[in-house]
Amino acid sequence: MRTIFRALAPLAACLALAACATVTSAPAGAMKVGAAYEVALGRDWSDISKIMNGRTDKVRLLSIDGPLLNRLYLSDGLEPGEYLIKPAAKETPTPVIRRDMSASERLEFVTDSVVALEYQRVQLVRPRPAKLGQGSGVRFDLTAQTKSGLDVKGTGVISEQGGKTYVLLYLAPAEHYFDANLAEVEAIIGSAKLG
């Protein structure tokens, strides 16, 4: 218990709480993720992209209750050499997209990216064929733990279309928070329009 605060500190440190950083509203309705990619939000979210370290211009990060309680990563098409989680330092590289990745390598990219977020015991479960927009992809669920031992669940989809990789990843504590917004996330995945 006493280690929990210390364990949560790295997550808290992920916040780039610069005075100029802002959190904006992502209102219910259509939201553009990229030039040719949009999803429909069923409720208002907060766009916390600008206060989080480790994100890139191609990744939007949404939350309802803050990143410790729910976070939804939406990446625009990632090209070879690009990442979902930007490395904090050269010494701590994060997974990058490679050309001609197999389906299993793309799933590994997801789990390794979650590990890069300092989650532990990351396990991918139930990979299954799925659609993202009109293209094919792989749906997956995952389980993980924070350093303090809080169980976390995730779900998402990864899809390669036109040489670019699209990732939608939702993470939240298994206790209450994951299920509380799962239907909303499923609807967002189903609403994706690409191209």
Binding site: M1, I4, F5, L8, L11, A12, L15, L17, A19, A21, T22, V23, T24, S25, D44, W45, S46, I48, I51, S63, I64, D65, G66, L68, L69, T146, S148, G149, L150, P173, E175, H176, Y177
Partner: peptide, 24 residues
């Protein structure tokens, strides 16, 4: 108990910190 820690940290970040969440 662990979830309470995460909730407490979130309250400290967004109700007492420099940024607030529009959803809260």
């Amino acid at each position: 108990l662990r979830l309470h820690e995460a909730v407490g940290q979130s309250i400290m970040m967004f109700n007492y910190g420099y940024v607030s969440l529009p959803t809260k």
